[in-house]
Amino acid sequence: MQLDWFIIFSLVTASLWTVMTRSLLRSGIGLALTSVILAIFMFRLNSPLAAVFELSVCAGLISVLFISTISLTHPLSAQEKIQHMWVRLARFWFLPLLVIVLVVGLLLMRSRPQIHMPLAQDLKDARVVLWNFRQIDLLGQAIVLLAGVFGVVVLFKERQKK
C-alpha cells in the first residue's frame, strides 16, 4: 500500500518535472521516465502484458522519436537560456497552485463509484480476450498501422531526398 502511494507520487512528480524542466532534451527524458514508472505501476495492478507494451513502445519507441526530433533543433545560447527560463516560469507559476486546488477539491468531494461486479466465468488472459472478443480492434490496429506507414511516406519522404 505504501509502495503504491509512493509510485503514484513519483508518477505525478515525474510528469510535473517533464513539463516544468527548462531543456527540451530533459523534457523528453522525463517523458520516458514517466512511462517507466507507469509501466511499473501497471505491473503492480495485475496488468503485465500491457506493462510490457508500455515499457517497450512508449518508453522506448516514442522517446527515441522525441529525442531524435529534439536533437534536430539547435540548442539555445546561455543568455537566451536564462531569458527563456524566466519567460517560462512566468507562464507556469499558476500550475502548482492549480494542482493544489484540485487536490483539495477532490479530497473534499469524495464519492464512491458504483463498481461493476464481474460474472463468475471471468477470462484472466488478455491474449484470449484480444484475439477472441476484440477482433474488430485488431482489424483497426492493422488499418491504423497501414495509415501510419503512409503517413511516414507522405510526411517524411521529401526530407530524405534533400
Partner: peptide, 29 residues
C-alpha cells in the same frame, strides 16, 4: 483492476498504445 476485468482492460490498453504511437509519429512529422 478495481472491477477485476484486467484482461479486457489490458487488451484495450494494447490497442490504445498502438494507436498512440501512430498518432504521435504523424504529429512529429
Amino acid at each position: 483492476y478495481i472491477t477485476a476485468h484486467e484482461a479486457l482492460a489490458q487488451s484495450l490498453v494494447i490497442t490504445l498504445i498502438v494507436i498512440e504511437v501512430v498518432v504521435i509519429t504523424v504529429a512529429v512529422g
